[in-house]
Structures are given as C-alpha cells and as structure tokens.
Design a protein around this nucleic acid. Structure first.
Length: 882
RNA sequence: GGGCGGCUAGCUCAGCUGGUCAGAGCGCCUGGUUUACACCCAGGAGGUCGGGGGUUCGAACCCCUCGCCGCCCACCA
C-alpha cells in the first residue's frame, strides 16, 4: 500500500543511488544506438549551486533523460571549471581572513598547493548538489579543466595556434586590474555609472603667448601627457599646431598636434593625449609616434616616471593632488559634476586601468570567420533564433583576445624564455629546451612564462577536450560533435563563441548542432543575481521544502523564452501539489487493483471511455515528444500537467469509479488494465521532468523488471486515436460540467436528485450518454436519465457539446436567480449572434475569407440562434410560472 | 549612440507562422468531510491584451509611432 504522500526527503537520495548503481547514467554501449551528447557548462569548482544552475541543469537533465528513454546512447558529460580569477580570489580572501600572509609572500608553489587543497575540500560540493537535483550525468566521465588530459589539450592548442601565428605576444594597452594585478579581457570589464567630475585645466603655451584648455575625468593621467591634440580644421587652434605647451606640474614641453580624433564640438576642442593610459590616446600616440610614458605601477600607484612628490601615491590620491596643484597654480579653469561610465573588473569590482604591458593574444578575427559561417549556414542553430544576431554582432566586430593572466591558478603558458628574452613555445619543457639548444647552439637555462591562461581558453576546448582530444578516443569519435548545448545568454561571448572558434579550428566540425539559450533568473528588480549583491536564492532550500521534482517542474514550466524568470514559492508549491495529485491517482489505482495484464492490448479496448482516454493519451504523448524535441520545455510541462490533472484525474478516474464499484467483471478488468496502462504511460512521459516521484511510483505500482530511467519512451501509434469516442465522451463531460454549473448557479441543494432529461442528442451521443448513465448520476447527482424531447414546465434547459439537456429542478430553486441566469446567458448569445451575423453580412468577408472559416461562422451562428431560441422559451415559461 | 527583450485578469505568466485566443496557476468569493487526494472537490467574479495610427473581410498576434521597464554592446577627452 502506498503511503499517504511521496516523501521526497527520504526517497530522493535512495532513488538517485539506485540509478547511479544501475549504470543508467552511462550511455548505452549498443553500437547501433544513436548518439546524443551534451556537455555541461562547467560550474566553478569552488562554487555552489544557485538557482541559475538549477534551471540550466534541470533542462539538460530533461533532455538527456528524454533521449535516453528514446533509445539514444545518451551522454551528459559533467565537469568543473578551475575558474582562475574567481577561485584565486576566494583563496586569497581566506588567507587574508585567517591572518595568513598573502600569496606573493608565500610564493607560487605554496599558494597553488593551497588552492588545490581548497579544491579538494570544497570541489565536490556542486556535484553533490547536482545529484540532489537529480542530474543524470555520467559521473564516470567527469572532467576538470586542470586535469592532465585537458591541460595537455590546452598546451597543444596553444602551441599549434602559435605556430600558425594565431597566437602572438604583443605590447599594448590592456585592461589592468590593480587589485588582482593582472590583465583581463574586454569581456571581463563592466562599465559602471559613477558620480565624477570634469576638471578643466589650462596648459600654458611654451612661448607665453597664451594657454590651451583641456578637460579630463582622470586628472592624474596628465602627468603622463605627451601631446595636446586639436582638430586639423579647427580655426581656433590652427595657428597653434606645431607649437608646444609646457605641461604644468611636470614642466615638460609637449607638442600641439593635429588629429581628427579631437572633436571641435566637445569641450574646448582641444584634448590632452596620454598614450600609455587611454585606449584612444594610445592610437593617437601611435599615429604621431608620441612617447608613451607609464606612470603607474601594477597596483596603480604612481611610479618613478611621475614627479617626485607623486611617487608612491595611490592613483586616487594623486588625482586629488593634481587638482590641488592646478588650483594652486591658478590653472584650474572649472569643475563640473558629471555622471559617467567607469570601467571596473567584473570579479574584483575595482576600477580598471588601461595599462601598457606585454601579453599573449589570440587572433580572434581569423578564428571567427568559420565560426560565423557555421551559424550562417545553419550547421549550428541557436534556439531561440534571435540570439544569433547577438552572436553575429560580436563575432563580426571581434577584437584580439588577450589570453594571458598574471595569476597563479590556471594553465601556465607553455613558453620558455632564454637569457636574451627570446622565447620558445612548446608543449613541454624538454621540447622547449631542444628548440633552445638548436637556436643557441648550446644548452641555456630557460625560464617558463610566469603567466597563466585565461580560464575561458580551456573552456573553449571543453566539448572536445573532455572527450579525449587530442587522442582519437572512441568517445570523441562517437559523441563529437555534441548535440545540444544548454547555457545562459550571459556567456554567449565568453564561452559559446569561443567554443565555436576552437572547435571548428581544431576538429573541423562545429562543436554542437544546437545552442539552446535558457532564460536568466533575476531578482525582483530585474537585476542579475550575484553573490556580491546578496540577492541569490538557494535552490537546495527549495528542494528541502518542496522536493526536487517540484522545483524541476516549476523551472521547466517557467522556462519560456524571451523573459526573465522570477520564482515564487506559490508556484513551486503548486507543482508539489501536482506531484501529490499524481501520487494519489496511483493510490487509487492500487486500491482498485489496477495492473496491466501481460497480454494487454490497449487498442483492443471496447468501452468508449477507455478508447477515449487512450486517444487522449496518444495525443498527449505526441505533444510532449514534439515539444521536448524542439526544446519547448514549458509546452511539454503544460501538456502533462493538464492531461494528468484535468483529464486523467478529474474525468477518467471519476468515470472509472462506477465501473470499478460495479459487478461487471468484464468491464472491470478492461478498465483496471486501461487505468494502469495510462498511469504507466504518464509515469514515462513525466519522468524527464519529475524523475524521482515517477521512479518511485514505477517501483511501487507493478512488477517491473527494470528502472523507469531506462524504460522505453512511449511512441504510441496514431491509429489508436478514436475521434468518435472523443466526440461522444465530450457530450458526457459536457452534460456533467454544464449541468453542475447550472445547479451551482441556481443553488440547487446537493441533496436534490432530479432526473436529467436529454432533449436532443445525435444517436451516437445519446448512446454514449446511456452507456455512462451511472457516471452521470453520480457526478451530476441526478436520479436517472430520461430521453424525451419534451422537458416539461419546471425544467431548466442547457446545451453542451452538441446535445441538449434539461434539469427539472423548479421545486428547489430560486426563480429569480434562474431568471438572471437565463438573461445573462441570453445576452452572451445575443452578442455572439450579433458579432457573427455582422461578419456573415459582410460581402468582403464572404468573398475573401477561406470557405472553411465562413462555414465555421455559419455553423456558429446557427448554433447560437438555436440556443437562443431555447433560452427564450425557457424564460417565457419561467415568467408564466411566476 | 547601436541593438535586443518586455508591457495580456490583484500577482506570476501561456497565447508559434493573423479567423472559438481572451487563457493557466496562485490569490479572491460561494458551496462541499460517502473510503485516491483539504497539498482536495464543485462553481464563480475579474482583463477595451501599454497609448495612438495603419494594413486586412478580420489583429493580443503584421507595419508605423509614442510611452514606460529591463538587458547587451560601444562611447562620452
């Protein structure tokens, strides 16, 4: 006997263990099985599961379970990302909190060891959490981006790209994070609106003939100015071009140059040029061969290139001091408060500085071309399609990718430097040494590059590195390219685009056929959830409270596109209740001995009600299958919800009751079998979304050889659909549903048992009503069915699904309420008649609308008119009674 | 500055390629304890589908425009 309700807390871990031990998570080894693979977007190794992960991984699990049941060799490959900056920051913060020395003091080796220790300690957390969600990943294939295999792939790719001149070393401005003391890529910079100022400074002309005014939001950079630029066509300054100003504070003469970059419309029309500390100025500096003076050290303190009084000052201290000096010199020409965007490091949150350093770059432009083409050609399709625009936009304007980071946690750059600074890029130190020997003619001490690679460099290889590349493994052969990638739009640039580039370049194939972009879960203000904002929701708490299935069902049902998801507890509760509903339906079946006989052939069912529920089951199965194939997760969830609750439970099981309580063994056995068969089909269809409760019911409700996770997906023949049965049962449902509304509106007491008079019904429908008399009696609380065209005086007429009825309840009711009911109904019909006849009177409509639409309207009009006539007659009778 | 998405019942949202599409869940109101389920059952109220214009025989759905809300990219010396 089933318990009163599903106990998710105890059942879920037990069931998960069953699945894992059964080996169901590993792809079928049947060589004939169609491969279907998904690689997980690897979560940060030290991270914990947030609600976004819950959504993303639920959808992946729904797909992979669906495909597995459909007979695919389904592989969901899990793993984790070392997440360079994020992880290093966490550990550094821990060190600081514990009062330990910083990483630079403890040294590289000790620090990295410390990170590994932290990884060992906390690294399993997220995979345990994924298990609680029910994720059916193949854990035996779990990968970590710093694994030896993946590291080898990284080195190989780096060396190959370098050989092809697609990776190169260059000295240029980078986005420098002074807190982390590393370069970061453009993508890792986020602009934040800040309240700042515009300071207007006067630079005196060297010959004393006047001054030129420039404006800046970053006064400290003036210490590194090497020119003032004006527009070549600017009449105000034409005569000054070629002259010099004397840079205040510094005392250095710098030229006034002519460059289009200066915009005569902005400010004074003259602009200070600081090539070493501004991206635009850098370009101007290159054009005019200006000196590039770097005045900052890696922590953004003023260095020895700044005047003595400024050395060692923090950049913001220096800013104040510069302003003060200008004021003291009488050269401050104005200050205005402005709100402007300032670049910040997305991880550290500190203001990023343009900073002149040597870094490694990937020539993304070249790699992007085939990746653009692949999407243009439809070899990879985004779902929803509009994300392709975003992808194209970025890819077509892609900039060189700075891939080196001055961090310690990550893949060390496989380049070794000789004593003269020449470097040798090689997969191993030995190879580098060999190359060096060849170059120098003798052995030289080599020093490996101190830097590591951007985390996303290894992530870019994920779809093939995890499958064993560069080895030609059987997994790579079988599961690459992967089928669907499910991820968030926030990492289309960071990750998806780069996987496309690397995948195509190194395997010649696009890494996935389809990219499904899931919605982003946001907080009430529509802001992205993040730890630093403190607005995260904990999915595990929700799992504790409602069970994993309820959370999964909610996320699946709300996964609709083009919208942010805002979770509400009420919604999750609703889906938890849905699970309980299903559970109780199973209990009902169990109590009534519903099992599927070994030789049961559903299509051989004779009872109309059974043929009907079978038809609806076939339709639902088809709808769910189609939806899941198209990644229309919400449609699948809605179809299942409706079918289980509003059809199977609300109607079919109710219809079964009189039969099961009756004495006709023949009818009983067919009904028992069908009820059990449909329930079983429901369990299968529901399993991808709600795996735990369905698996439990699968085990509890019948003698079954295997687990549901490995069961076969219902692919039911359309020939099983019996439209006649559906139509006829619609009359039965209608008779009850509309009859109930009539009773309720008229406040007919529940104890009243009038007969139900069927005044008009086609023979088949009449037959269906007759066959289900017991059901109608019970559900509508009527004494009997009478087939008679005359309803008699006190009968309340109603129409439902092609048949007309009357309930003789005059003795029980409030006549004025009935009058109101009739008039309301009459008004509704009147509106419909007016609308429809207006349409039909329109000659344009008749001539231009398709014939079937016109016909449909004619039928609607006729129907409405006949109903209206009946209602009018009833109203007249009512008036007569009064 | 460029781009994307949204604005549908009190709340959260479905409504794909124009013709029962005006819906669901929650909430609310009314009535229900006969043995699947009160995490339940039955019934009900509630919206001129952001404003305006246009195309069409017909528009929540297509076009234009305006207004909010949110996001992405670029940039503001």
């Amino acid at each position: 006997m089933l318990a009163k309700a599903f106990e998710s807390a105890t059942a879920e871990p037990r069931l998960y263990q069953l699945w894992e031990e059964s080996g169901a998570f590993a792809p079928s080894s049947d060589p004939a099985a169609r491969p279907f693979s998904i690689v997980i977007p690897p979560p940060n190794v030290t991270g914990s599961l947030h609600i976004g992960h819950a959504l993303n991984n639920t959808l992946q699990d729904v797909l992979i379970r669906f495909q597995r049941m459909r007979g695919a060799a389904a592989l969901w490959l899990p793993g984790m990302d070392h997440a360079g900056i994020a992880t290093q920051m966490v550990v550094e913060r821990q060190l600081a909190a514990a009062g330990n020395m910083g990483r630079r003091d403890m040294g590289r080796e000790a620090f990295v060891e410390r990170v590994w220790a932290w990884k060992a300690e906390s690294g399993g957390a997220i995979s345990r959490q994924l298990r609680r969600l029910g994720a059916s990943c193949d854990w035996s294939r779990e990968r970590f981006t710093l694994d030896e295999g993946l590291s080898r792939a990284v080195r190989k790719v780096f060396v190959a790209l370098h050989r092809e001149k697609l990776i190169y070393r260059d000295k240029r401005l980078v986005n420098w994070d002074p807190q982390m003391q590393t370069a970061i890529s453009d993508l890792e910079v986020e602009q934040r609106e800040i309240n700042g100022h515009y300071w207007h400074f006067a630079y005196p002309l060297e010959d004393g003939s006047g001054e030129i005014v420039v404006a800046t939001t970053r006064p400290e950079t003036m210490l590194a100015d090497t020119a003032v630029a004006v527009h070549p066509g600017d009449e105000r300054y034409k005569h000054l071009i070629g002259k010099c100003v004397r840079l205040p504070i510094v005392g250095r003469p710098i030229p006034i140059i002519a460059d289009d970059y200066a915009d005569p419309e902005k400010g004074s029309g003259a602009v200070k040029i600081t090539p070493a500390h501004d991206f635009n100025d850098f370009k101007v500096g290159q054009r005019h061969r200006l000196p590039m003076i770097n005045i900052l050290d890696p922590q953004a303190r003023l260095n020895e290139n700044a005047p003595a009084a400024f050395r060692g000052l923090d950049r913001f201290e220096a800013r104040k001091k510069v302003v003060a000096e200008f004021e003291a010199l009488g050269l401050l020409r104005g200050v205005e408060a402005v709100r402007h965007a300032v670049p910040h490091g997305d991880r550290s949150g500190t203001v990023v500085e343009p900073y002149l350093t040597d870094q490694w770059y990937v020539d993304a432009k070249v790699l992007a071309a085939p990746a653009i083409k692949a999407v243009e050609d439809g070899r990879t399709v985004f779902e929803p399609r509009h994300w392709e625009k975003t992808y194209f936009e970025w890819m077509r304007n892609i900039e060189p990718w700075c891939v080196s980071r001055q961090l310690w946690w990550g893949h060390r750059i496989p380049a070794w430097y000789g004593p003269d600074g020449k470097f040798f890029v090689a997969e191993t130190a030995e190879e580098a040494a060999r190359a060096a020997r060849e170059h120098y003619g003798r052995d030289e001490a080599l020093r490996q590059d101190e830097d590591v690679l951007d985390t996303w460099f290894s992530s870019a290889l994920w779809p093939f590195s995890t499958l064993g590349w560069p080895e030609k493994t059987s997994d790579l052969e079988r599961f690459y390219p992967t089928h669907t990638l499910i991820t968030g739009f926030d990492i289309i640039f960071f990750w998806v685009a780069r996987m496309m580039m690397m995948g195509l370049h190194f395997t010649g194939e696009t890494p996935f056929q389809r990219v499904y972009i899931n919605a982003l879960i946001r907080d009430a203000e529509g802001a992205k959830m993040s730890k630093s904002k403190g607005n995260v929701m904990d999915p595990l708490e929700l799992v504790d409270r409602y069970g994993a299935d309820a959370l999964r069902f909610t996320l699946t049902a709300m996964s609709g596109q083009a919208r942010d998801i805002r979770l509400s507890n009420a919604r999750i509760e609703g889906y938890r209740n849905f699970g309980t509903k299903l559970w109780n339906a199973a209990r009902f079946c169990e109590m009534n001995g519903c099992v599927i006989p070994a030789d049961f052939d559903p299509s051989a069912a004779r009872q109309r009600v059974n043929r009907w529920i079978l038809s609806e089951t076939v339709k639902t199965a088809a709808k769910v299958t189609e939806a899941l194939e198209a990644c229309a997760f919400d449609d699948a969830a809605a179809a299942l919800y409706r079918f289980v609750w509003n059809l199977y439970c609300d109607w079919y099981l109710e219809f079964c009751k009189p039969v099961l309580q009756g004495t006709d063994e023949c009818l009983k056995s067919e009904t028992r079998a069908m009820a059990a068969y449909v329930l079983e089909t429901i369990l299968k269809l529901l399993h991808p979304v709600a795996p735990f409760i369905t698996e439990e019911l699968w085990r509890e409700t019948g003698e079954r050889s295997g687990l549901l996770i490995s069961a076969e997906w219902p692919d039911l023949p359309r020939e099983w659909i019996d439209e006649n049965a559906s139509d006829e049962m619609a009359s039965v449902v209608g008779a009850i549903a509309v009859g109930r509304a009539v009773r309720s509106e008229l406040n007919v007491p529940l104890s009243a048992r009038p007969p139900l008079i069927v005044t008009d019904a086609e023979p088949e429908r009449a037959e269906a009503l007759r066959a289900n008399e017991a059901v109608i009696r019970q559900m509508l609380r009527v004494s009997e069915l009478i087939f008679d065209h005359e309803a008699g005086g006190g009968a309340i007429p109603y129409v439902a699904d092609g048949a007309a009825f009357a309930l003789p309840v005059a003795d029980f009711i409030d006549l004025s309420a009935e009058g109101a009911r009739l008039r309301k109904e009459l008004a509704a019909r009147g509106d419909e008649i007016a609308r429809t006849s207006k349409k039909l009177a329109n000659s344009d409509f008749l001539s231009r609308a398709p014939e079937e639409v016109v016909e449909e309207n004619r039928e609607r009009l006729a129907e409405a008119e006949s109903v209206k006539a009946r209602l009018e007659a009833a109203l007249a009778r009512l008036e007569a009674i009064r």
